[in-house]
Write a protein that binds this DNA or RNA. Structure first.
Lengths: 193, 193
DNA sequence: CTTTTTCTGGACCGGCTGGTCCACTGTGGT
DNA sequence: ACCACAGTGGACCAGCCGGTCCAGAAAAAG
């Protein structure tokens, strides 16, 4: 599919409009017609830019949102080289999800598109990159002698990822951010030894 | 609504049949007609026993499954009074979710019924009871002098809940149970100090 | 045995939603 | 000027799915 500048702009408008919609409103039943209305486009355009329809569009939105998740944690996530940096990262994660509240765009997408290979791939990629940064941070702290060498960096990084995911899920269900905080704080405590 | 013995049996058959279906098959798009077919009932019966339709039925199934989640961890979860007991509990959780694999009945229900008050209440109740047992376990370990008193039992219990939830979610997305294991092991390590 | 209530089966409906189709318009290249 | 193709709009369709309704069987009540 060849795209002109105008075409690329429209395609992007659809993705970002859909993402904005998911971030603001109840995402339980997102329909193509909702997105069409919000982005000021037509059915023809949606299927022109996303020939495979709903799934292709939603996966594009999911990838867009997945990038945002990591971007929102930068520059902290990329430089976990001191306890202060870890605290700043912690705060940025809490702040991000507190602002997001109960609406989780990625979660909404995933429950819509189900567990297709494409969806799993988006989530896996995000979690892998996320965990990679945390693991790097732990390893650097160990090299600097700030974290004991007996800590299994990969395992604890996995625990961070799981704790964050679970904390966000609890936030979505109960509206309380306490679990996310507890998870991050406990694991950082664990690193401090 | 008055129920005879036969009626109660049918109602239960619907709930348990639906639960079994969610446990085995891809639960992305569960429809009332699926449940009707599997349980060998008719539309009339479903709406007879669950007048509010889909949501009422699905919440009943969710409550049923939520009870199972805790039951499957007993008797270990109720008596976390030694390190051996904690390990047994850990193993039972891992075993349960390894057996369950990618199909998470409760998760499927929740993504179907959305974030209605009823659904949130079911999840909140489950998580609260779960966390209560873990907190009690930590407190007992502290009283026995096996865990240092400086540990905030409630906070670490919350971290356990978040870690488990996140681990299960990663399992659903990637099929790997590593995150669940990492989370439990890291937090138990943390308790060991 | 009659009456009343519960239980069961399934035909039917209305609306929603993803997806198709086609006509029309813009636009860039030659 | 022309042409080919990208972009746009929206009417239309088919299937699905939650939900309604009613008629008849079974069983409790009297």
């Amino acid at each position: 599919m060849r795209l002109t500048a105008k075409g690329r702009a429209t395609r992007q408008r659809i993705i970002e409009g859909a993402a904005a919609y998911l971030r603001s409103d109840d995402p339980a039943g997102v329909t193509l017609d909702d997105i069409r209305a919000i982005t000021g486009t037509s059915k023809g355009q949606i299927f022109h830019y996303f020939p495979d329809g709903k799934e292709e569009l939603f996966l594009a939105v999911a990838r867009f949102e997945a990038d945002r998740v990591l971007d929102d944690q930068q520059p902290h996530l990329g430089a976990l080289t001191s306890w202060a940096a870890w605290e700043r990262w912690r705060d940025s994660v809490i702040a991000r999800y507190r602002a997001q509240g109960r609406n989780c765009p990625l979660g909404a997408l995933m429950s819509q598109v189900g567990s297709t290979p494409g969806a799993n791939e988006v989530v896996s990629t995000l979690l892998n990159r996320w965990q990679f940064h945390v693991r790097e941070g732990i390893a650097e702290m160990q090299e600097a002698g700030l974290v004991r060498a007996s800590v299994d960096a990969d395992r604890v990084a996995a625990a961070f990822i799981a704790g964050i995911q679970g904390g966000v899920q609890v936030l979505r269900s109960t509206g309380s951010i306490a679990h996310l905080e507890a998870s991050l704080d406990t694991l950082i405590d664990h690193l401090r030894g």
